[in-house]
Design a protein around this nucleic acid. Structure first.
Length: 270
DNA sequence: AAATTCTCCTGAAGGC
DNA sequence: TGCCTTCAGGAGAATT
């Protein structure tokens, strides 16, 4: 399921193939995603050059002289670079055709999105009010500490809130809380500055390590060339309810927090 | 305003 | 083998 490391992996995979290339055609097979794929996307994009490919939060931004294509992979989306005329599969929603390759979006669960904006993407309503990038210098323990004062939402929900910080999805929230020895249900307003600093260090560490491994492949995620990510091997707690805690050996707990499965050690995380 | 719940969707896994 | 139920989840929208 694409979280920030998977989106970053996808970005690094597709960028070299499409940057500077001119769109020769667009095929929309299944327009129904989270929002309908723009009807006139083919007209809009064809003959435009992709000037740059960037990422903001989990949005991929393909910038042209006339506007920006915004892609979101939802929870089951993947982008691949394929030879032109590769036969499509069941959930292949969209092809963007270039002279020598095809950028194909597959999204079985249709939580993803394809949007077009003429304005600067930073102004787009979905992007304008997002928190800082977790791997940027703006994301510090001090920042999280200040954001969290007078709030009592569970810490795990807090760090997964895109208005606080972007890109910390369920897998990596669980992992970084474990590494920090912090209980996911701890009210965020009660955590000390010191412990926020440790947490931020671990969020950055986990995300950076996952990017190095090409992300985590649990079900649907695949890289632009079809390979999986390998960070699964490094997971300490995610999906491991009942298994021994890697630190103390007691069985790991599982509980739903804010509609998300949460995994933690009641002994090591306080 | 902040916190919580609902919603979209499909495929995998488990129960009988 | 097959049908049913349950679960997974990003994040906007709706509700409390």
């Amino acid at each position: 399921m694409p979280e920030l490391p998977e989106v970053e992996t996808t970005l690094q995979g597709i960028a070299p193939h499409i940057t500077g290339k001119t769109v020769r055609g667009v095929i929309v097979r299944h327009p129904r995603l989270r929002w309908p794929v723009p009807k006139d996307l083919k007209q809009t994009l064809t003959d435009l050059q992709i000037n740059s490919v960037r990422r903001r939060a989990k949005y991929l931004l393909l910038e042209t002289a006339n506007g920006t294509l915004i892609l979101h992979l939802g929870m089951s989306g993947s982008l691949r670079i394929l030879p032109v005329n590769t036969p499509p599969g069941t959930h292949d929603h969209l092809d963007i055709l270039f002279d020598d390759c095809c950028l194909r979006l597959r999204d079985p669960r249709r939580f993803g999105a394809v949007l077009w904006t003429r304005d600067a993407p930073e102004q787009h309503p979905l992007i304008a009010h997002l928190g800082p990038e977790p791997l940027s210098d703006a994301f510090t323990g001090e920042y999280l500490y200040r954001c969290s004062r007078n709030r009592q939402v569970p810490l795990k929900s807090f760090i997964m809130d895109g208005k606080v910080v972007v890109g910390v999805g369920n897998i990596y929230a669980n992992e970084s809380l474990f590494l920090s020895g912090i209980h996911p249900l701890k009210p965020c307003g009660k955590l000390s500055r010191k412990r926020f600093e440790l947490l931020v260090e671990n969020i950055k560490r986990v995300l950076a390590a996952a990017i190095r491994q090409g992300g985590t492949t649990l079900r649907d995620f695949q890289r632009e060339d079809g390979r999986p990510g390998y960070f699964n091997q490094e997971l300490q707690v995610y999906g491991k309810a009942g298994e021994p805690c890697p630190a103390c050996g007691k069985p790991l707990s599982q509980k739903r927090i804010g509609q998300r499965s949460s995994f933690y050690c009641t002994h090591c995380q306080r």
